[in-house]
């Protein structure tokens, strides 16, 4: 088993304002999905969600606002799962609720060295 980082990306500026009920339903989908991975004993780290704000620091000492200077998509969070292969990691990622919100999941193998 290797560890894979799942990075959740979406254009959060396009996310409509949600009612509390919709937010609750969304949160349940995330919890059920993470719970499903944990129930398969394939969760290496639940990870974190990131705030929508951010700063980008460049080599010439300029600092810009927002984590997404050039692209509209930003990272909303990450988790680490255990899998035997990219194919198996992708199977786990398929249930991620962000896919239904127009977002995507980047799957990256974590180097063991």
């Amino acid at each position: 088993m290797k560890d894979y980082l799942l990075v959740f990306r979406a254009d959060f500026s396009l996310m409509p304002n949600r009612t509390p009920e919709e937010m609750q339903a969304m949160s349940k989908r995330w919890m059920d999905w993470i719970g499903s991975i944990a129930a398969q004993n394939k969760l290496a780290g639940v990870g974190n969600r990131l705030e929508g704000t951010g700063r980008v620091l460049k080599g010439d000492s300029t600092i810009t606002n927002g984590p997404y200077a050039e692209i509209k998509e930003s990272i909303g969070g990450y988790s680490i799962v255990k899998a035997d292969s990219y194919e198996a990691a992708i199977e786990l990622a398929k249930g991620c609720p962000i896919l239904k919100q127009g977002g995507n999941v980047e799957v990256r193998e974590i180097s063991e060295n």
Binding site: K28, M31, D32, I34, G35, A38, A39, L43, V46
Partner: peptide, 8 residues
């Protein structure tokens, strides 16, 4: 939800 958390 409690089991989801417990398994984590």
């Amino acid at each position: 939800q409690l089991y989801n958390q417990l398994l984590q």
